[in-house]
């Protein structure tokens, strides 16, 4: 029993094709991969917007900016 299509290497390599585990699940893997990619962007846009808002709220007053630029 093997998760890959190979149970033994006592074979003619000319007949060997895929060697990765769970052959047949490629479509599901693709859906999972694409979903993870999209979720990452959704998280990132929220993270970036919050970071900018925090920075503006905390440091964005004209006095503070003038001080920073003068430094």
């Amino acid at each position: 029993m093997s998760t890959t299509p190979i149970d033994s290497w006592a074979v003619d390599l000319a007949n060997v094709t895929a060697i990765y585990p769970f052959v047949g699940t490629e479509f599901i893997l693709a859906i999972v991969g694409i979903a993870l990619w999209i979720v990452w962007h959704i998280w990132q846009i929220g993270f970036e917007n919050r970071a900018f808002k925090d920075e503006v709220d905390k440091y964005g007053s004209p006095e503070n900016m003038r001080k920073v630029i003068d430094e």
Binding site: L13, T17, A18, V23, E26, F27, L29, A30, G33, I34
Partner: peptide, 13 residues
């Protein structure tokens, strides 16, 4: 060459 295509994983052929 689709993400689920046969050439996209390790294979000896």
């Amino acid at each position: 060459y689709a993400p689920w295509g046969e050439s996209m994983g390790p294979r000896l052929d």
